Computed example of a mutant assay.
Amino acid sequence: MVKRTSLEGDPCPIARSLDAIGDWWSLLIIRDAFLGVRRFSAFQRSLGLAKNILTVRLRALVDRGILAIEPADDGSAYHDYVLTAKGRGLFPILVALRQWSEEFDDHPEQITTTLVDRVNRRPVRKLLLAAEDGTPLTAEQTTLAGR
């Protein structure tokens, strides 16, 4: 396996975020955690990932504070992987990726689920980037400023 270059000290927050998340397997682990997966065996079943690769990815997500290890709530000797506040903060990122795919995927008919509000069971509105006053913004209407 090729060793990754750390982007931890990069001044770009996008690069730093990618360093913290890791890779696409890690995003799929996080997706599954949002869907209620908590046990190593359940992650492995869902993702079809080799045990050694899953072990490394879970350890990295714990080390980065995205997942935490807790004793299993059923009293068994197993432990659960649960999202931390930092991990739950990734929810809008996953929603944005999902919505981008729903809009631009070459085969949207193969997408078999829709993200809905639990209470009303209605589709979630597309994420919107807005100015402080609520005005919608496009990429062309934004720029980077020094601090």
Rank of each mutant, 00 (worst) to 15 (best):
F104Y: 14
I53F: 00
V124W: 10
I14T: 12
R39D: 05
V37M: 02
R31I: 12
Q110C: 09
K51Q: 07
Q44L: 02
D10T: 07
Y81W: 07
Y78S: 12
G146T: 14
E8W: 03
P13R: 04
D74H: 05
D23E: 08
R147H: 13
K3I: 04
N52A: 03
F104R: 08
K126H: 09
R16L: 02
F91R: 13
G146L: 12
G146H: 14
A15Q: 10
E140D: 15
D32W: 13
I69W: 03
T143P: 00
P136D: 09
K126C: 00
A15P: 03
P108G: 06
P11S: 10
L7V: 03
S76T: 13
L28N: 15
I93Y: 15
R45I: 00
I21S: 06
V56F: 01
R125S: 14
R121E: 13
A68N: 09
G22C: 01
I14N: 05
L47E: 05
L35Y: 13
L129S: 05
K86M: 06
T84M: 08
L47D: 07
V119N: 14
R38L: 01
R31S: 15
L94K: 02
V56T: 09
R16T: 01
A68I: 00
A72P: 04
M1C: 00
E132Q: 13
V116Q: 13
S6P: 14
D117F: 03
D73S: 15
G87Y: 10
Q110S: 14
T5D: 04
E140H: 13
T55A: 02
F91N: 08
E103F: 01
T55M: 00
E103L: 09
K3T: 08
R38M: 02
R121F: 07
R118M: 11
